[in-house]
């Protein structure tokens, strides 16, 4: 399904109402995933197994925050501001996948690494599908983000190989895969089927979610099986309308605004200082405009 014509949209002004909704939907998926995953990653700061991994996780979190900022910036062109995008947004208005909001069990490093791996492969595939987006502000940002993502994947696969090298580590990785795999599938769920159809029809993203998910599943299975980890199959129902959801999906998808209880407490934590200080707008160290 290619774009109806070779139309490209240079800015928000070139979008009709349907397209505006679709672009914002796409951006919220991208930005919210990055923000929430980064927030979770920071929990490993000073708690990871080695000094190097402390620093690596902190740095990866900083990268993901930078990418979240890049996507939120485009949302600002639609009239949003930081206050309503982050600090004052209701928990069920966030569109991230429930994979990124899950808490880590204490000391479960395998969970952090498996999660990073499942997410980073999905992000890599998704970003490549955005390289030729018809919406220029998205297309223009993809290259820089991809350049900063390579070593995330390298880092995760490197750790997975080491963890899976002995029985105990491999068992921990297997447990994490079994637990997180259904949540990872929610990365590929639509926020809204109609809006998702527009995203693909107008060429905002080059591939639909089912194609992305198939590519992801093959890549993840190939690698994990090569290090002795079993990956669940992708059981798809026989009948479907627009989007095919696999049977293994968890109860809460996140993409539709329905999150697990962990999200509300994480958001409370994230906005605690803002709330405690009685703020009603996001303050900056430097004013944007004098």
């Amino acid at each position: 399904m290619a774009a109806a014509d070779d139309a490209t949209f240079a800015s928000t002004d070139d979008l009709d109402e349907t397209e505006q909704e679709a672009v914002q939907d796409l951006l919220f998926r991208l930005a919210d995933d990055e923000l929430v995953l980064a927030e979770r990653y920071t929990e490993w700061q000073v708690r990871a197994p080695t000094l190097e991994s402390d620093i690596s996780m902190a740095n990866i979190a900083q990268d993901e925050l930078g990418h979240a900022r890049l996507w939120y910036e485009v949302l600002k062109d639609f009239g949003h501001d930081e206050t309503d995008l982050i600090w004052e947004r209701d928990a069920d208005d966030f569109r991230h996948s429930t994979l990124v909001e899950q808490p880590f069990a204490e000391g479960d490093w395998a969970d952090a690494i498996v999660r990073a791996y499942l997410y980073d492969v999905a992000e890599d595939i998704q970003l490549h599908a955005l390289e030729n987006s018809t919406f220029e502000p998205i297309r223009d940002r993809v290259g820089k983000v991809l350049g900063e993502e390579d070593y995330h994947l390298e880092y995760a696969t490197n750790w997975l190989e080491r963890l899976a090298a002995d029985d105990e580590g491999r068992e921990n990785v297997q447990d994490a895969v079994d637990r997180l795999y259904p949540y990872a599938l929610t990365l590929f769920e639509p926020t809204d089927e109609e809006v998702e159809a527009t995203i693909v029809e107008r060429g905002l993203r080059g591939e639909d979610l089912v194609e992305l998910r198939d590519t992801w599943h093959d890549r993840v299975s190939d690698f994990l099986e090569s290090i002795g980890i079993e990956v669940p199959g992708l059981d798809l129902p026989d009948q479907y309308d627009v989007h095919i959801s696999p049977d293994e999906l968890p109860e809460h998808l996140g993409r539709d605004g329905d999150h697990t209880d962990h999200w509300e407490s994480l958001l409370d934590e994230m906005t605690e200082a803002y709330d405690e200080l009685g703020r009603d707008y996001a303050t900056h160290i430097m004013d944007d405009d004098e």
Binding site: L65, H67, R69, M286
Partner: peptide
């Protein structure tokens, strides 16, 4: 140089 540049606001200013 970097999307997560912590000196962003300072430098732009």
């Amino acid at each position: 140089t970097y999307t997560g540049c912590p000196a962003r606001d300072m430098l732009i200013n």
